[in-house]
Nucleic acid binder design. Structure first.
Length: 503
RNA sequence: GCGGGUGUAGCUCAGUGGUAGAGCGCAACGUUGCCAACGUUGCUGUCGUCGGUUCGAAUCCGAUCACCCGCUCCA
């Protein structure tokens, strides 16, 4: 069994070697948190996005698509809460290197008479969600320090560190005085400037999520598409976040791609639709080959829920580096539409002609990370097994067991040898298949080597033209995973692939 | 952001101050003819980057960038 990191190292190496994923701007030393998809990677990623689109948009009659701009009016991000809420000011301890959210760090200073008669002031600190919890924690501390204090002279009121700092605030972990930094904002939105002048009036943001483009177009879609509730709007697109610490290959990138659905429904139906999407999205990954042992659906605890969510579940995958989120499905209630209605001053309510009811729809949001899905599919696909070499001795083989629907190359066509008219026949087959699928032609070197190369690319089928082909117009089709070969007529190749690829 | 590690060919890595290497891969030709075959030939490098020490730096020092691990963080 590989150590977790071994598997990631091998996968990273294979992805580079075969052209799935490269580091961004590699010749300049790379760029933290940014990655490029190579010729095979872009096919895989497009397959993921196209399958998602056809499964949640074009094959349904209650879904439509959208492609909103990356840069939106900055007021959008005030309404969504990203300008204020996306930035959590952090406080660092210079001594013990601890880091705390400033809004969770409370402090209090209290005067007291010491046993020797002098007046002392003692600082307290605690990490807590509420001032009351901080007070409780500080009173415990007070009892310990109280031994040297004869009498406390003032009241005790915890103050949030981000509202008023004090040098007397000790570090809540190591207790050291005068070691905390001022709260520093980590704004997770990338800024840019629209127009030639770089001043505050031209400040704009690269969207941190695609969702707001959907909410802002809710009324447009409703007014133009003759839709009735419940219905959803789907969007695939790039989003940007200043992640404090990009890590784990493409998993936490600063530029990434999302696949998001906002499904609008009557508030009374929200829970039912939440449960529907929660299951539907989980099943989607399983059907594309993510093993159910490594995939899990985790419901958030009530105290874990964001302020806007009534319910939330994460689709999580057990990556080699840990269990991490691929997609979150949330019941966002009417929070977003309400915010935009207030901030824009535009009516975003829905009127139901039959019930004569006017209301703000509730929203179920299945929000998935494209790059995270791709990485999970790659991790799941990486396989080492043994296959016999030309002398029948078992040899290590590396293959990517990608689901055929995801495989960048659907089939490779080879002449067994580069002579006797085999290349011509093989190339004709290749030309025909290319009209319908992404297929690959290779006539160089030993056929075994060509098979193995396709194994690493995740190509599910290899079609080989041999001496017998020239006699009876049949070819062999080799299965990537089992190594089994079927012999079929050239005229049956397309239907064979169609059946086994599922399209 | 903190601490530790790593950075040399497409990949994996050797190379502790004196002419940049190996295996695999890749390309060409020939042989072979169904699973990384054999032979011959060939290609591949700002030794991550910048600066310093030195007669001389892949090697020593400093800075910086990137990746990995552990903390931290992840509306």
């Amino acid at each position: 069994m590989d150590k977790p990191n071994d598997l990631m190292d091998k996968l990273v190496s294979l992805c580079k070697r075969r052209g799935f994923i490269f580091q961004s701007s590699e010749i300049y030393g790379g760029l933290n948190g940014c990655w490029d998809y190579g010729p095979l990677g872009v096919e895989l990623k497009r397959n993921v996005k196209n399958l998602w689109w056809s499964d949640v948009v074009t094959s349904r009659d209650d879904m439509v698509g959208l492609d909103a701009s990356v840069i939106m009016n900055p007021r959008v991000w005030e309404a969504s809460g990203h300008v204020g809420g996306f930035a959590d000011p952090m406080v660092d301890c210079r001594k013990c290197k601890g880091r705390f959210r400033a809004d969770q760090l409370y402090y209090a200073v209290r005067q007291g008479q010491s046993r020797h008669g002098g007046t002392v002031s003692v600082g307290f600190s605690a990490i807590a969600d509420k001032a009351q919890d901080a007070l409780t924690a500080m009173e415990l501390q007070l009892k310990k320090k109280g031994r040297q204090i004869r009498e406390w002279s003032s009241d005790f009121e915890p103050i949030r560190y981000d509202q008023q700092q004090s040098d007397q605030t000790p570090c809540p972990v190591c207790g050291e005085q005068e070691c905390l930094t001022a709260p520093r904002a980590f704004n997770l939105m990338l800024k840019t400037y629209m127009g030639a002048l770089e001043d505050s009036s031209s400040l704009a943001y690269l969207r941190p999520e695609t969702a707001q483009g959907i909410f802002c177009n809710f009324k447009n879609v409703l007014d133009t598409q003759r839709l009735k509730l419940p219905f959803g709007i789907a969007q695939v697109g790039k989003a940007f976040r200043n992640e404090i610490n990009p890590r784990n290959y493409t998993f936490r990138s600063r530029e990434f791609e999302q696949m998001e659905i906002e499904f609008f429904c009557h508030p009374s139906q929200a829970d039912q639709w939440y449960k529907y999407w929660r299951q539907a999205r989980f099943d989607w990954y399983i059907n594309l080959g993510l093993g159910s042992q490594r995939l899990r659906l985790r419901d958030h605890d009530k105290d874990e829920l964001a302020h806007y969510a009534a319910n939330c579940a994460d689709v999580e995958y057990a990556f080699p580096f840990g269990v991490s989120e691929l997609e979150g499905i949330a019941n966002r209630t009417d929070f977003d539409l309400k915010q935009h209605q207030e901030c824009s001053g535009k009516d975003l309510t829905y009127y139901d002609d039959q019930t004569k009811e006017r209301f703000l729809p509730y929203v179920i949001e299945p929000s998935a990370g494209v790059d995270r899905s791709v990485l999970a599919f790659l991790c799941e696909a990486y396989t080492e097994d043994e296959a016999p070499d030309d002398k029948g001795n078992p040899k290590k083989r590396v293959l990517m067991k990608l689901h055929p629907k995801l495989a960048p190359i659907k089939a490779a066509v080879f002449p067994l040898v580069k002579k006797d008219g085999m290349p011509e026949v093989a190339h004709k087959i290749y030309d025909d298949l290319k009209k319908r699928w992404n297929v690959f032609y290779d006539e160089k070197g030993a056929v075994g080597r060509r098979y193995r190369r396709q194994d690493e690319a995740g190509t599910p089928f290899c079609i080989t033209v041999d001496g017998q082909t020239l006699q009876d117009q049949t070819v062999t089709i080799r299965d990537r995973d089992s190594l089994n070969q079927d012999r079929i007529g050239i005229d049956k190749i397309a239907s064979y692939l169609s059946e086994h690829l599922g399209n």
